[in-house]
Design a protein around this nucleic acid. Sequence first.
DNA 1: GCAATAAAATTGATTGACTCAATATTTTTA
DNA 2: TAAAAATATTGAGTCAATCAATTTTATTGC
Lengths: 143, 143
Amino acid sequence: MDYEQILKERNLSLTSVRLAVLEALEQHPHSEAGVLFKIVHKKIKTTSKQAIYNNLNMMVEHGIIREIKPKGQPSLYETKVGDNHHHIVCRSCQKVMDTDCHSLAPCLSPKISHGFVIDEAEVTFWGTCPSCQKSKGDKNEQH
Amino acid sequence: MDYEQILKERNLSLTSVRLAVLEALEQHPHSEAGVLFKIVHKKIKTTSKQAIYNNLNMMVEHGIIREIKPKGQPSLYETKVGDNHHHIVCRSCQKVMDTDCHSLAPCLSPKISHGFVIDEAEVTFWGTCPSCQKSKGDKNEQH
DNA sequence: GCAATAAAATTGATTGACTCAATATTTTTA
DNA sequence: TAAAAATATTGAGTCAATCAATTTTATTGC
Ligand SMILES: [Mn+2]
Ligand SMILES: [Mn+2]
Ligand SMILES: [Zn+2]
Ligand SMILES: [Zn+2]
């Protein structure tokens, strides 16, 4: 994806750190700031964690990237935006996977809205991933 | 609700702090630990924040209470458990409201499960509450 | 291109939610 | 009611994230 273009369209400065964060995010979806810092740091030795945080926050505000925050994990980021997709999180290893909605504009109608004007439905599925299912099986066998 | 009974059934010690936390939670659903500490502290002057955290965590593990963690807020707790209800959060004032599911076992089937065994679907609706809609209107009128 | 200006990056301190671990107190058991 | 187990208190510590001052980099206008 042409992030230079996306940034220019919004009159955002084109900086090395910003582009490196987007590249890292594209290759490692659902990453936290610390992980992104490590990846960017390989390329740009002088970068700082603060720069990563600043850029992530700024790009979230501009809708260029998305932030999710599953319980028990720091904020995770991804470049997949505007498609209202949902997430599956493993209770044992915290792995996060994408899953689409059943319908196009799906869950935007709660049963009782309390007068709220709803603009987003965030769905997190919790469960056990395939590899954790296996290791749990192994553990049980040893009993 | 008879929390003494609930605790006894699970062979959990019956302590003053624990009961006070449950009582506070029942009267103030979706409260964070700090708020609960203040409420409990009025009754039990010697209590500590750590005791609140310990009890909250322990009771969450036992399924006596539920923890939710909307993005941008500390963990919130409630005694309403086992009904798979969802939440509506106001983007401006962070108010949290309950909303039921449309069906009884609703969202437990994502479109693509990636082999995960799903046990819970957590749904958070984001929007603007009635009073924030009004104050936003007021603001706009002044432009 | 180059100076002026604006935006972003760096650095170090700071916050806030939450946890850890040692000791003291309370609750349960028998 | 004494012994054992569970919980509470206290103080230190962790970690993600933010704030703010200064320096560096990017953009704008010439
Ligand atoms: Mn995703
Ligand atoms: Mn609720
Ligand atoms: Zn897993
Ligand atoms: Zn509101």
